[in-house]
Measured scan of single mutants.
Amino acid sequence: QCIKQELICKWIDPEQLSNPKKSCNKTFSTMHELVTHVSVEHVGGP
């Protein structure tokens, strides 16, 4: 049986000017979605 898990993006953008810096905190249900999000939204490139 599949256990529902919540994956949370903890990326902190080093360019943020606010202190304390905020992490992204978007939630995902699969590791694939999380990896895709980080690749596209934070790292950039294909």
Rank of each mutant, 00 (worst) to 15 (best):
Q1G: 07
Q1C: 06
C2S: 12
C2Q: 13
C2E: 13
C2I: 15
C2N: 08
I3W: 05
I3D: 03
I3Q: 14
I3M: 13
I3C: 02
K4G: 06
K4F: 03
K4C: 04
K4S: 07
K4N: 09
Q5H: 05
Q5I: 00
Q5V: 01
Q5C: 02
Q5M: 02
Q5R: 10
E6Y: 02
E6N: 06
E6Q: 07
E6R: 06
L7Q: 15
I8M: 11
I8K: 15
I8E: 09
I8W: 06
I8T: 11
I8P: 12
C9K: 04
C9Q: 02
C9N: 02
C9S: 01
K10N: 15
W11C: 02
W11Q: 14
W11S: 07
W11V: 09
W11N: 07
W11H: 11
I12A: 05
I12F: 08
I12R: 07
I12S: 10
I12L: 03
D13C: 08
D13R: 04
P14S: 06
P14D: 02
P14W: 04
P14Y: 04
P14M: 05
P14E: 07
P14I: 00
E15A: 12
E15V: 08
E15K: 12
E15R: 07
E15N: 06
Q16Y: 07
Q16N: 04
Q16M: 06
Q16F: 05
Q16I: 09
L17G: 05
L17T: 11
L17H: 02
S18G: 04
S18Y: 05
S18E: 04
S18W: 06
N19K: 10
N19Y: 04
N19D: 09
P20M: 10
P20N: 09
P20T: 03
P20H: 01
P20V: 09
P20I: 04
K21M: 07
K21H: 11
K21V: 09
K22H: 11
K22D: 10
K22W: 04
K22T: 10
S23A: 15
S23D: 06
S23T: 14
S23N: 14
S23I: 12
C24K: 00
C24M: 00
C24G: 03
C24I: 00
C24T: 01
C24R: 01
C24W: 01
N25M: 10
N25D: 10
N25P: 14
T27C: 08
T27K: 14
T27L: 08
T27Q: 13
T27H: 04
F28C: 02
F28E: 03
F28D: 00
S29C: 05
S29T: 15
S29F: 07
S29W: 05
T30A: 13
T30M: 01
M31Y: 06
M31Q: 15
M31G: 12
M31V: 05
M31N: 15
M31L: 05
M31I: 15
H32L: 04
H32C: 08
H32Y: 03
H32K: 10
E33Q: 10
E33L: 02
E33K: 03
E33A: 05
E33I: 00
E33F: 00
E33Y: 00
E33P: 01
L34Q: 04
L34N: 02
L34T: 02
L34S: 03
V35W: 14
V35P: 01
V35I: 11
V35F: 12
V35K: 15
V35N: 15
V35Y: 14
T36V: 05
T36P: 01
T36W: 09
T36M: 05
T36Q: 12
T36F: 04
T36I: 07
H37S: 01
H37M: 02
H37Y: 00
H37G: 03
H37T: 00
V38D: 08
V38Q: 15
V38Y: 12
S39M: 06
S39Y: 01
S39I: 02
S39E: 15
S39C: 10
S39D: 15
S39N: 11
S39W: 06
V40M: 12
V40Y: 06
V40A: 10
V40C: 04
V40W: 03
V40K: 09
E41F: 04
E41V: 09
E41L: 04
E41I: 07
H42M: 03
H42W: 02
H42Q: 00
H42F: 00
H42C: 00
H42R: 01
H42A: 02
V43Q: 13
V43E: 15
V43W: 05
V43D: 14
V43C: 13
V43M: 09
V43N: 14
V43T: 13
V43F: 12
G44E: 07
G44W: 09
G44L: 03
G44K: 08
G44C: 10
G44A: 11
G44N: 10
G45P: 07
G45A: 11
G45K: 08
G45T: 09
P46N: 09
P46V: 05
